[in-house]
Nucleic acid binder design. Structure first.
Length: 313
DNA sequence: CAGTGTCAAGGTGGA
DNA sequence: TCCACCTTGACACTG
């Protein structure tokens, strides 16, 4: 198997967009142009493109993919009046089958507006609605609980402790369909790995380890130690530990994701991460191009070959 | 039809 | 209190 280590497979992936295929699964439109008809057309096109992307990925051995949050535009917005779940039930199920039969790992990442630790209950309410939509997509695809929805802790609101506590309090009471898929990710400015681990200790959410954010914001844990700690938070039903990977784009502001994969840095990352099992999401701007390059590096890395022989699976 | 201002949703920090 | 920035593609209007 590609990139095998520790008896498991390292899956490598990229988020949301494929630049080779000439289609987009995240087409949307302005709220002012909303109509049921427009919605139906757009979702049909998005699902068709998603299917193409997943097929491309399978054919290239890219077995980890983040599905765009824009698959169904305005899904959690009050304007939504189209029964997209029923209308596209068959398509979702088909895509889900393709995912399962290909052994593809799936994640979703609601964006910055989803803040379940906000002091404003209105913001929390809208965030929960958005999370329910994400869970619905994965449920309609009939994916198991290894398909995850990743969010950050959220804002500080001038009170770190209070904000962490509020995250726990609000997460705890989320609908079970959301909670069983929810994972919390360390960010580069506010809440590092240590805070996410505390949240895990309190409410049991797995911690998605973002290696680049960790470089920028940590409490001194080495990569190996961090992977130990994050890895322990993933239970059997959660699947292999998910890890986000990127590196600094030189000459750009701190935290800017690289435009393309730096093979030497990635090779070193793979080496330093041994012997941890993980599925790696490459947050690199050129998407599948870097994923293919990463796959080549993982396949050809002699240390991985040694590891494979050593583990004898 | 190319160029460009703008887009559901928030937080943060500087002016 | 206001505004740019985060980060990004793509919509949709302008000329």
């Amino acid at each position: 198997m590609p990139g095998e280590r520790g008896g498991e497979q390292v899956k490598i992936g990229y988020p949301c967009i494929n630049r080779s295929l000439g289609c987009s699964a995240n087409r949307t439109f302005r709220l002012s142009s909303y109509s049921g008809e427009r919605l139906e057309t757009t979702v049909a096109e998005n699902l068709a493109c998603l299917k193409r992307i997943l097929t491309f990925n399978r054919e290239h051995g890219i077995l980890f993919f983040r599905i765009t949050s824009d698959l169904v535009p305005f899904a959690s917005h009050p304007v939504m009046d189209f029964p997209w779940q029923e209308r596209f039930r068959k398509e979702f199920r088909q895509i889900g089958r393709l995912i399962r039969e290909s052994g593809i790992r799936i994640s979703m990442h609601p964006d910055q507006f989803v803040l379940i630790n906000a002091p404003d209950p209105g913001i929390v309410g809208r965030s929960v609605a958005e999370l329910r939509y994400h869970a619905q997509v994965l449920d309609l695809m009939e994916l198991d609980t290894t398909a995850k929805i990743q969010i950050h802790v959220g804002g500080v609101y001038g009170d770190r402790e209070g904000s962490i506590r509020r995250f726990g309090d609000n997460a705890r009471v989320l609908p079970e369909k959301v909670l069983r898929r929810l994972v919390v990710e360390n960010d580069d400015l506010r809440f590092p790995l240590a805070d996410c681990l505390r949240i895990h200790g309190e409410i049991g959410l797995p911690v998605l380890f973002d290696a680049f954010h960790h470089e920028l914001n940590n409490r001194g844990e080495t990569l190996g130690r961090a992977l130990d700690l994050a890895g322990e938070t993933w239970g059997k039903a959660d699947g292999t530990t998910m890890v986000d990977y990127s590196s600094q784009e030189e000459g750009k502001r701190r935290g800017t994701h690289a435009a393309t994969l730096d093979p030497r840095l990635f090779s070193r990352f793979l080496k330093d991460s041994l012997p941890h099992d993980m599925d790696v999401m490459l947050e690199i701007k050129d998407k599948e191009r870097s994923a293919l390059a990463a796959l080549g590096i993982a396949l050809n890395d002699p240390r991985l070959t040694l590891q494979k022989a050593g583990m004898g699976s």
